[in-house]
Nucleic acid binder design. Structure first.
Length: 249
DNA sequence: TACCAGGTGACTG
DNA sequence: CAGTCACATGGT
């Protein structure tokens, strides 16, 4: 379905001095190196994960997974499907109390019920109930519309743009922030856009590249670069200040 | 047991 | 702009 762009194979395989004690601004070579190292180690990740598949599930899953594990999200998606609450109209028509019971496993069930309903109303009111109409918008307009919906923040908006609409908007999450900090890469400020800008400024805006890059970061950080990092199992250890013992996590 | 897991919005200084 | 808090379930 996706074909890796040739540019991947022209990426840098080296990074700047990993023994620097103070954070340094990452170069294009650094950002290319990280992708290449993870891709060589793990191969394509083929995200977004699915239970039943389809754009509807992807978007609903992006809301339900907020600050919770995917396994919890899966339970909620299965409940919704089994209850035949599997369209924006169905979400809108289902009483709050029923929604609470169905999505309870995903946590924050009251807040997420409101989020799902606000999003369903948005799609029905502004896009004739069809996600394809949202996905057809230019990235900037799509992103602004998504951010206008209560419960859709920057990460969820970019999840939907990248993994739903298949357009290049880099996803920044807690894992992304953690690994960049551990690598000793200085970011101007702590805002979401500061992190995203790094990737947008230094990489070609390619949906496949952004898709795999974010997926590889999450795969790697969830398993290796944990709060207590497993540096003895890390393929980046020889190029990371933490892995080299230069700095502490 | 306590901590952790693919955030967001409300509120504060 | 940066920091803090509530929101809530299931796994380890």
């Amino acid at each position: 379905m996706h074909t890796p762009p040739e540019i991947i194979y022209e990426f840098s395989h080296v990074r700047s001095d990993p023994r620097a004690r103070e954070p340094v601004a990452p170069s294009r070579e650094d950002v290319e190196w990280l992708f290449t190292a993870l891709y060589d180690a793990y191969g394509p990740r083929q995200w977004w994960p699915t239970v039943h598949g389809g754009s509807f599930e992807m978007v609903i899953g992006a809301i339900l997974v907020q600050n919770i594990s995917w396994s919890n999200t899966e339970r909620a998606l299965i409940n919704l499907r089994d209850a035949d609450v599997w369209s924006f109209k169905a979400i809108s028509d289902t009483p709050d109390e029923t929604m609470h019971d169905l999505i309870r496993p995903s946590g924050y069930y009251k807040a997420k019920t409101r989020k799902l309903k606000e999003f369903a109303d948005f799609i029905m009111t502004n896009h004739h109930g069809d996600l394809a109409n949202l996905f057809a918008l230019p990235i900037g307009e799509m992103r602004n519309q998504l951010l206008s919906v209560w419960g859709i923040g920057e990460e969820t908006a970019d999840d939907i743009i990248l993994y739903g609409a298949n357009k290049p908007s880099f996803v920044v999450d807690a894992y992304t922030r953690r690994i960049l900090e551990r690598l000793g890469w200085d970011i101007q400020g702590k805002s979401y856009s500061a992190y995203q800008q790094l990737f947008h400024d230094l990489l070609p805006h390619d949906a496949y590249l952004f898709n795999e890059y974010h997926a590889l970061i999450d795969y790697h950080v969830a398993r290796i670069c944990k709060k207590k990092p497993l540096c003895n199992k890390c393929v980046l250890a020889g190029n990371c200040p933490v892995g080299l013992g230069v700095t502490q996590p």
